[in-house]
Design a binder for these strands. Sequence first.
DNA 1: ATGAAAGCGCTAACAT
DNA 2: ATGTTAGCGCTTTCAT
Lengths: 339, 339
Amino acid sequence: MKKRITLKHIANQFDVSIATVSKALSDSYEISAKTKEKIQQYAKEHHYKPNSVALSLLNKKTKTIGVIIPNIMNNFFAKVFVGIEEKATEKGYSLISCISNESYEKEVKTMELLKNGTLDGFILSLAEETQEKEQYQHLKNTINEGVPMVLFDRVTDEIACDKVIVDDFEGARNATNHLIKTGCKRIALISVIDNLSVGKLRAKGYEKALTDNNITIDPKLIVKIGKREDFETAMKIVLADKSIDGLLCLEESSAVQSLEIVKRMGYHMPNEMSIICFTNGKLPQYVTPRITTISQHGKYIGEMAAKILIDRLEGEIDAPFQTKVIKTSLIERESTKRI
Amino acid sequence: MKKRITLKHIANQFDVSIATVSKALSDSYEISAKTKEKIQQYAKEHHYKPNSVALSLLNKKTKTIGVIIPNIMNNFFAKVFVGIEEKATEKGYSLISCISNESYEKEVKTMELLKNGTLDGFILSLAEETQEKEQYQHLKNTINEGVPMVLFDRVTDEIACDKVIVDDFEGARNATNHLIKTGCKRIALISVIDNLSVGKLRAKGYEKALTDNNITIDPKLIVKIGKREDFETAMKIVLADKSIDGLLCLEESSAVQSLEIVKRMGYHMPNEMSIICFTNGKLPQYVTPRITTISQHGKYIGEMAAKILIDRLEGEIDAPFQTKVIKTSLIERESTKRI
DNA sequence: ATGAAAGCGCTAACAT
DNA sequence: ATGTTAGCGCTTTCAT
């Protein structure tokens, strides 16, 4: 069990100063060829690695990004994380990652904790609870302290920083238009995330598509189901209205559950009932019929967020903030009719 | 945009030495009450936070754990990560996390990169490619350099370190026994992960259950499907044998795909065909019929791995290595008959 | 009760 | 070509 070796050890080894060793290892022209060679060789043999903590202290840069994800079991967030990780690695950054678990308190504590010098900037998506409470002081503080931050997906206008968001409005509008074009007359919106900014935007997109097509918005068809309500019961009440022939589900598990209920009720899909949902995870692809989804391009969003943050860290610190809006794609499967 | 404040700033503010400030903030008895009070108050008002990089350099401890996950889109690994994160946070540790993406090279590079002083220890599960190549030099080096490491799930006997593993053998044996008890006569093993240590163990458990029940092992029923093969084609060939009435799938997506094929072939489930699979994710729960699964208790495994590593970091450095074996649980659903 | 000094590992400006 | 010094932010021992 040989310990990590330092410049000092090498310096002692050859009876030179630490500075000489440092320069030799960085191949400085100031050092003679043979000194360089013997020192470099020794360093390699003994697996010398510069202590990055010391370097961080010196440079006041840690090459580390703090990532706060509301819930890693969520397919979309997992994909975003993959994207962040890939881009960060490519650019030589490490990730300190935390899960807020949708909790406001955890989010606040995590931010406070990590603002201790261990990282250069943050990438995060707001916890559900944070969006409900609309309390953003911890984010404002972070910005004020000069720590760069990129918000993605679940964002807020209250914070001035770089953002990467999904075009939720347009995604929902497109999807609803698609349902209309394929012949659906009565489309219900199923939202279990109306407490989230993205949920509200998607609902707006749905409404816009209806009015664009001169369809009256029927509040009975805008179904908001809370976390504590029994989803199945709620859906059965909704589906008592037999005229409904299309569902726009705002995330995947409610879609899969709805599909189940609809099938049990004897609907023929997609002829008698169509379903589209947000989030293109595994779930919608493996059920029968496979569900048409709206892909949010999670991985790309992650890459973009990482790129923007790193550009800011390494470039002009006071470039204007940008908000990148990522277009969604409709992935047609068997739960919707062909045009 | 006020910058981070340091002890030096405070010291200048009150015309005292840095040492005095440091002591005052740690409430040392050496400092007079009123000096302490004014310094503490000033520090609080200005949100003083000790620079953890400086502390890390001083203490030679970073309170950071490196986590290398083969694939975060995998439900099991995501759960493990949640467990690690929870326990680490509880104990005051941060996580530097990387995704090896099942690549040997990425795993090696990541380890090399992170062994630069930024972390106190590793928690990791081997990449698929690493297990295929059976090259573990990078892990041995890490151990030799005195960096504590906990391996979970995908481990190897070649490395002496703490481990947390699933009782894969027993889990497969139990599941197979369950199929036999519920009347299955010809059970096929479907493995798309025979290149993994866990895949091999599960296959052994399956065989053991058969021999325990005096059933001859039929090599035709041990189906190993490679990543590059077309799963559906392979399965259809297998299922040409109409005597097969049970499937033990070694991970979830092959189970869901098999289910699909079986349903299309007109089998009635679970009467004519039973399915059990490893990994209790969302997928098996949302398909019809819901699939009976073997839960590996991923979150618990993560917690345990974090606990063991932290205990080693904070306790006796040379306690004997332990291998914790976590029992699986069979979660009965509709894809298997009742006893 | 307070301060000076050393040191964690490293780099860089400035000698020699 | 090599060394000395200072300093990144902090704690701790040893003066005073």
